[in-house]
Design a binder for these strands. Structure first.
Lengths: 210, 210
DNA sequence: GCTAACACGTGACAC
DNA sequence: TGTGTCACGTGTTAG
């Protein structure tokens, strides 16, 4: 049992531990209480984490944290590759054009073009105009939005003949759109439709990177 | 500096603190060393976690753990919603609403709603209007077109409270849109953009269903 | 009895 | 000032 009464004894530095010692004791007590609260807070979070790992209970703190680490890494990779497959917009602007199939010299090329950028109201019509101006046909189009950002993927075919530098011209056209985005960078309401306030926190896609 | 030499003194229980005292001191030392190792292990894991959260450095242990918790939850939901397949429009009209996650009674529901139908010019604005009128928020939205047909998939969350019959009301709203489609069944130009004549034959989307 | 894990109180340092 | 965080050594308990 700790001493919480103050006796008239000499401290090591010659300081009296008398009536003033009561204050010291009180301060000490609040200190230990604060520390106790800190521990409780940390342990509460650890308890929450214990509920999020598959192994359920019975795990010491260190291995629990190790488990959480591997969980996070695992989830990151799966979420990343899954979102790649599903064309979820990342938070870095991006334009990609790749050739899916080169139909043996003459005839049509099959392209896959994607653009990822912040949303703005004229984006869709700009896209449509850009594609219309190119010597391509849209076979398939996919538009995804997440947290105010947009990713759009096109599967395109070229007509006969004019397949010289279609790839680069498509790329340039899409880049124009992205840059026009960053030009009119003042924020506008997102496409579809976080017009109402977003109650769920956005997915920070940067956390999917590493 | 701790006493690591053993003097011939009597302990309080009458136990000699002699040569055996050296053992006691040694045991105590190994104890504290073991504890130190344990702390280092835990702290190393915490440091690793610090590298996995977006905020980088400067975070006390408790808030770091809190951040990790929200990270894990976030990643879990995204990983779940990403595990759905590709959303290619079939050539049969369809409306589906399913519950992805029921957050423990209170709080928000996570829904996945999809609609597949023929394209018409007002479809997008109709969709937007319908979603706006519902007590839901759009977390993610994906629109795909193929051969004049369109499929749109939404990941929705409901606010607190009004989660009673959201599923059925969402379903009803989307069905209304589909039926409105077949009502104004006279053909209009497709969404995005086979406005120019389609030189390649449409992909029969039934062959994608497998 | 030995190891491993935990909670506790305390000194030190920071803002 | 005091309020908060951290590392440390120790007491205690379980396997």
């Amino acid at each position: 049992m700790p001493v919480n009464q103050s006796f008239a004894l000499d401290g090591e530095n010659g300081k009296k531990i008398g009536v003033s010692g009561a204050k010291t004791v009180a301060a000490l007590k609040s200190h230990s209480e604060a520390e106790r609260r800190r521990r409780d807070r940390i342990n509460a979070h650890l308890e929450t984490l214990r509920g999020l790992v598959p192994n359920k209970e019975k795990m010491d703190k260190a291995t629990l944290l190790a488990e959480v680490i591997s969980q996070v890494k695992q989830l990151k990779t799966t979420a990343k590759q899954a979102s790649e497959g599903l064309h979820v917009p990342m938070d870095t602007d991006d334009v990609e054009v790749e050739m899916l199939e080169n139909n043996a010299g003459h005839g049509s090329l099959l392209l896959r073009a994607s653009i990822c950028c912040e949303y703005r109201p004229e984006l869709l019509s700009d896209l449509r105009q850009a594609i219309d101006d190119l010597p391509v046909h849209v076979m398939k189009c996919e538009i995804s939005t997440l947290g105010g950002r947009v990713k759009s993927v096109f599967v395109l075919t070229t007509g006969e003949g004019n397949n010289g530098n279609v790839v680069s011209s498509v790329h340039a056209a899409l880049c124009n759109i992205v840059e026009k985005v960053s030009a009119s960078a003042d924020y506008a309401q997102p496409l579809f439709f976080p017009r109402k306030r977003q109650r769920v926190s956005y997915v920070d896609s940067s956390c999917l990177s590493s």
